[in-house]
């Protein structure tokens, strides 16, 4: 199914080569804050402080963390939309740090993003067909209409939606459109940033199933970012827990969930309310208990 000619050219030895899909080595990212004093420059914000991990081909890798932990910055760097202050990032074994926009073309074809908010991630003035086909335009794809129809079908939407505008769809349907767009350039890596946290409960499971199916069928590598451990637990094989710009714990999802080692991970797991916990008598005070040092 993948476009053999391009993928073979761009990723030498893809398939058999054991090279990691993503490898992040000691990445830091500092932001300058605007000056508030004439005498001293403002202290920089350390969004990422020495982050390292690797995602082998075909793995479903989860990143869990709360707001401000640096996960969004990390995603932008993975996608080549931002540069680390130090350290290196390699996609399919090729270092992308320090590459110019033009040289990042292979990243644009190998790695695609799915965003959290299905409202703001689709251009309100474009038709669905054009939105999904946009990455194809960038690639100069010859058969755009056909490919768009194929993609819409793959995400469970009727092909006649191509002529409509995003505001005519519900949140779950928009997220399907967003996923179709991400799949358009036949990427091998999908980076999903909280893709279901803005969705209604009754459609969340549909979208999670869809993502799982597509990852299987197309043998994709998935990086799944969420604040919700239970979602990551269902989706991912391996998880990294981020806190304060660092990865504090990483391991197979089940293991991290069952035997969390780092105090922060323990706190995080204890604080998640679940139906099961609640019905066995866990109160709000109990959820909070772990929180206090």
């Amino acid at each position: 199914m993948p476009d053999q000619s391009t993928s073979a050219k761009l990723a030498p030895g893809a398939g058999t080569d054991p090279v990691d899909a993503i490898s992040v080595r000691d990445v830091t990212r500092d932001y300058r804050r605007p000056r508030t004093s004439l005498r001293h420059p403002s202290p920089p914000v350390h969004a990422l402080r020495g982050v390292s991990f690797a995602v082998p081909q075909g793995q479903r890798f989860g990143i869990v963390g709360e707001s401000g932990c640096g996960k969004s910055t990390l995603l932008r760097i993975l996608a080549g939309l931002d540069r680390p202050t130090s350290g290196s990032v390699a996609i399919d074994g090729r270092d992308i740090t320090g590459l110019r926009e033009r040289q990042l073309r292979f990243v644009r074809e190998r790695l695609q993003l799915v965003f959290q908010d299905p409202m703001s991630s689709l251009d309100p003035r474009m038709r669905v067909g054009d939105i999904v086909g946009e990455p194809l335009v960038a690639q100069g794809h010859p058969n755009r209409r056909e490919r768009v129809a194929e993609l819409l079908e793959a995400v469970g939407l009727p092909t006649d939606v191509a002529d409509r505008y995003p505001h005519q769809f519900s949140g779950g349907q928009r997220q399907r459109i967003s996923i179709a767009r991400a799949l358009a350039p036949r990427p091998k890596i999908i980076v999903a940033d909280e893709p279901v946290s803005a969705l209604d409960v009754s459609v969340r499971a549909q979208v999670l199933n869809l993502i799982a199916d597509l990852v299987d069928e197309l043998s994709l590598t998935l990086v799944f970012v969420s604040h919700d451990l239970s979602v990551v637990r269902h989706v991912c094989d391996r998880v990294a827990v981020m806190h304060d710009g660092q990865i504090v714990e990483t391991g197979p999802t089940e293991q991290v969930y069952e035997e969390p080692q780092h105090p922060y991970t323990r706190r995080l797991i204890a604080a998640v309310p679940t139906l099961g916990k609640a019905l066995s008598g866990v109160s709000a005070a109990d959820l909070n208990r772990e929180y206090r040092p």
């Binding site: 644009r108 790695l111 703001s120 251009d123 990455p135 991400a182």
Partner: peptide
């Protein structure tokens, strides 16, 4: 907006 970030990630100039 995210749709611009998506377009950039898709390689649009």
């Amino acid at each position: 907006t995210e749709y611009v970030i998506a377009a950039r990630a898709a390689g649009r100039g």
